[in-house]
Amino acid sequence: MNKRKAVNLTSTVSPQKSGHKPLRETKKELPFPLNLYQSAVGKKWVMAITGLMLVGFVIGHMVGNLKMYLGVLEHDGSAAYDMDIYAEFLRNLLVPILPEGVFLWILRGGLLTAVILHIHSFYSLTRLNIASGRSYESKQDWLASNFASRSMRYSGIIVLAYIIFHILDLTVGATSDEFVHGAVQSNVVNSLSNPVIAGFYIVANILLCVHIFHGIFSVFQSLGVNNPNINRMKRGIATAVSGLILVGNVSFPVAILAGAVEYNECDPKLSVAEQVEENCVNSSGHDSDSDDDSHSESEGY
């Protein structure tokens, strides 16, 4: 008798010994656009978009802060620091379409969402990268990566810590008894005249710009808008943007510590023109309207 068996095309194949299982399984696909966020490429995309939003905010924030160099101006018939006028303008955005402060909160909501998504995508990609891991026993000779690209996770975490402190310090006013809602110039000068806070501010801003440098550099690639023409400009754009922010932001504590930016109260009897002339404000105007807390915060400054 021939020892033969019927054709069985599934049992004769031994599993491939050398192959191995995926490190992770693909999950069931969610409906659009959530499915984008299920993949690492999609997460990078989200990280890039939210990063761009946050860079936009940082630039706006810096430009707004430049107002502190303008000192006191005449505004609605009284003298006020330009900084404070700008803060009030922000609170009044889209008034009367929306009640005072509402649009500001919408902006803040958007920013908060961006921050959360940026951090979450960072967190989950970092976990993925660590799990995909490498374990070289010898020292690796880096050729293309730089301090900025390799320190993203650390610079990001330190900047986040600073932002939390910064909000408590200058938005909520939780760190100082002298904090006055809406008196932005006064609050900023009070805070940054403290060398410790100024030092933290400077270090955090340097890291922020290092972070932004690699962020801008990467954004073209992550969004897939790169091409050889853009590539030539990538490093230049990243340097310009992060350098501009660095110069602007670091100038504030330096100027305050150097006494170039001040907050001065002056004799209540001085006229508006005299206040502008003397670069000081009549402080009485402020204390009285601190009843409306939620609306009088400066926009995260």
């Binding site: 068996k5 054709v7 004769t12």
Partner: peptide, 8 residues
């Protein structure tokens, strides 16, 4: 049928 791989 295929020859069984247990075949001699």
């Amino acid at each position: 049928p295929l020859v069984d791989t247990d075949d001699d």
